[in-house]
Simulated assay, not measured.
Amino acid sequence: MTPITVTKASGEKESFDENKLRRSLNSAGADQQIIDRIINVISEILYDGISTQEIYKRAFRLLRQYSDRSAGRYKLKEALLELGPTGYPFEKFVGELLKRLGYQTETGIVVEGNCVSHEIDVIAEKDNKHFMIECKFHNRKGHKCNVKVPLYIQSRFKDVERNWSSQPSHEDKQHQGWVVTNTRFTKDALQYGKCIDLKLLSWDYPQNNGLKDLISKVNLHPITCLSTLSKKDKQQLLQQNIVFCQQLCENDKILTSIGLDSRKKNQVLKEAQDICNTNKNEMTK
């Protein structure tokens, strides 16, 4: 059988990899029976040059027929892209993610450097380590952070580090700069970051410890995963600094504040609770 070529969001071409699709469905929590059903349907609609976006949309619609929870998790990459149009919700998302991983965090902090002051997206501390973290949000698939981004962030970090190192409270602390993006880095950016010990964190980098892996580890999913919310509803919530499904589970009055009636509110809460509940068994229809 002739291999099917798929077109990525960046325009790059690659061979269709069934195992890659299986892994993404499995990571979303779908059981083997559901995965097999979806793969069978997707295999029937494949054609040479099909976009990865079309495959994703088809798989998402099928998965949603079986499990809202798995569908919401499968939508994670798209959901991160929807955190815009400003980068602030993504900064808050990163800060909370690190907090759940055991860091002390602050967001939107002005820090004095040796030469000038800097507004830093996230400051994080853990043990004797102190981190300056810049978040690069993109709302377009296929966009990559090139080497100019870590070059710029490293120069800011070095100015801040010089000031930190002069303070007695930082005498025994290790300092490091980070760049976090919801998309990917170019090869040059990754090479530069590794060379100068600037930590880079993207959708799938470092391998097995990228954003998608860390989010699954702490079960932190953005409200943009929810299919029961309209785009307008999501924007209203983001404007109120409501970024996580967990926030809705903890305070359902938030949904009343954006004008949802009781029926709609219950639908949203059920989906949010399903996504947040890692121990819930998958139910097939």
Rank of each mutant, 00 (worst) to 15 (best):
K158V: 05
T5P: 08
F60H: 12
E250Q: 12
Y88D: 15
K285N: 09
T278N: 15
H130P: 02
N146C: 01
L62Q: 09
L269T: 10
K194M: 08
E134N: 14
G193E: 10
R23L: 13
Q235E: 07
V94W: 02
G102I: 04
I223E: 00
N251C: 02
T5H: 09
D233L: 03
K126G: 09
V122I: 01
V6L: 07
L238H: 04
Y74R: 02
C276F: 08
Y74S: 01
D36G: 12
F131D: 10
G210H: 09
I42L: 06
R37E: 13
N40A: 10
K212N: 15
F244W: 14
Y103S: 15
K270T: 13
A79S: 10
G108C: 06
W178V: 01
I254M: 06
N139Q: 05
C249V: 04
Q246M: 11
S202P: 07
Q236F: 15
E12G: 14
K99P: 05
Y74D: 00
K264N: 10
V94F: 01
V218H: 11
D48G: 05
K212G: 11
E282Y: 08
C276W: 08
K280D: 09
D233C: 00
I223P: 03
P85F: 05
W164T: 02
K136E: 04
S67G: 00
Q33K: 13
N279W: 07
C115Q: 10
T52W: 00
I120D: 00
I258M: 05
Y103L: 07
Y47T: 03
L200K: 02
